[in-house]
Design a protein around this nucleic acid. Structure first.
Lengths: 165, 165
DNA sequence: ATCATATTGACAGTATACTGATTATCAGTG
DNA sequence: CACTGATAATCAGTATACTGTCAATATGAT
């Protein structure tokens, strides 16, 4: 058998697999029914009220065909709202609801716990190094995926959030 | 918006996302139609002829409900065979076909290229460090996922491949 | 031998992710 | 204003992954 332990791709899959399991464990135990993806989306919606789905996808690097279903489930749970844009009839603008804001606030400790649990085998320095190297590799590979992270404007203010690099 | 760049879970998702895209890119360009998961499974079957699906799942840390479909597709492509076990009527034993062996041999350069592409933003030392830290974090978190990596015996020889730690 | 327990593989159901295509709409050009 | 090209969202189809459940079978303790 090839030595998968030396293939970054295999390690990537295992690490992500564990990350999702840990998130479900911590967050589920705290009484919430949110997936990692739903949490990230809701968090981005809270911070950028009125953004459209394409911008949301770019902000957290989702595929644009995936985001529709994610938002569907957030809306169905009463955590977000989706409405037609008044300025672009193609776009749907997103807002967080009071319930969504409340959920985010109360879920934070569990999310924090999950992040720490995920690197529980590493010292603090090692965890820092791991994240630094992951970020570096991700930045270099950003354009290689169908869903690259993108700079964004808030649909509401048309003001650039992140400066062009 | 919460700072996802400091959440190992988010970085895990992005890194895996890019890993899959890179694999598809390199391997697809080389003319093959194998996913990362199918490649790993086929490779493990080659190295452990006659293993059953549960053992396969443990070897490469798949969920056992996922492995069935993966093997289905390998069989359908003519790369592997699945037969009833003669010693355990519950189990299905797996074998690689000549075509499967041939595919693995010819696909290797593309897989190698993908692994390098994935860490193209890092120096060789950094890539080594990244893999070391990922392995360390994964080892500590192994039991947290539904599909932990397990030691295995070959169904054929009943000989332990990896010693109990 | 028998019974409690564990294991193997399968199923239904849900949630990510992707490819590739389509529709509706917008924005810039001539 | 008409036309071209880009963009927002959706759809159909495929492949991972997981939860929870089940039937068939194996194994270990008594």
């Amino acid at each position: 058998m090839r030595n998968f332990d030396e293939m970054p791709g295999h390690l990537a899959r295992r690490f992500q697999q564990i990350a999702v399991a840990v998130f479900h464990g911590e967050v589920g135990e705290a009484g919430f029914d949110l997936t990692p993806v739903q949490f990230a989306a809701l968090s981005a919606i809270e911070a950028n009220p009125g953004l459209d789905q394409a911008t949301l996808a770019g902000l957290i690097a989702y595929d644009r065909t995936t985001i529709g279903g994610v938002v569907d489930r957030l809306v169905q749970k009463g955590l977000a709202e989706r409405n037609a844009s008044s300025t672009d009839r193609r776009a749907r603008v997103l807002q967080i609801t009071d319930q969504g804001r409340d959920t985010l606030e109360r879920i934070d400790p569990a999310v924090d716990a999950a992040q720490h649990m995920l690197v529980r085998g590493l010292t603090e320095d090692e965890a820092e190094t791991l994240m630094h190297l992951l970020r570096k590799a991700i930045d270099a590979g950003n354009d290689l995926s169908r869903a690259p992270q993108r700079t964004a404007w808030t649909a509401a203010s048309h003001e650039r959030i992140k400066p062009a690099k």
